[in-house]
Amino acid sequence: MTYLGKILYGIKTLWTGMKVTGGYFFPNITRKKYVITRQYPDEPAVVFPRFKGEVVMWHNENNEHRCTGCQACEIACPNGSIEIIWKREVDPETGKKKKMIDQHIYHLSMCTMCSLCIQACPTNAIMWSTNFHNATYDRGLLTKVLNKPGSKLMAGVEE
């Protein structure tokens, strides 16, 4: 390539690049045509139903859950994020002593969102919630008790 040819070729390639950025810039000034910013607190975040935000335990309207306290999730968890404290209590219906959960403790701070606990659960007691507003000032707040106070096992789950 000749000396002048090189210079012209260089200017041409530079102009090709400038056309690309300019092609986005000028429509953006007037109409914000290509702007992809989602201004989060003003515009809601798009969260898909399968999003793995945190593990929650499902309760029905009578404050009943499906967790039998079998500890399958605790064993499946690779990080020790789940601890189940269980107790033996007298079942008011049958009158026999029975193993029940006292507290289903979930350390969100240690969870890696691998879904193994949810796969392992035989009664589908725990599930993913799409909530992602989990930031706190205190790490202790990330340790959660999943079963609500006063809740009990839903009838018919153990069969």
Binding site: V46, F48, M113
Partner: peptide, 23 residues
């Protein structure tokens, strides 16, 4: 977004399990 819709995560998906996929 395609990933998030299917696997529930955007980066660390943990989508494979032995013998298949999670969902």
């Amino acid at each position: 977004e395609i990933m998030e819709k299917t696997t529930g995560a955007r980066l660390t998906m943990s989508y494979n399990i032995p013998g298949g996929v999670m969902f």
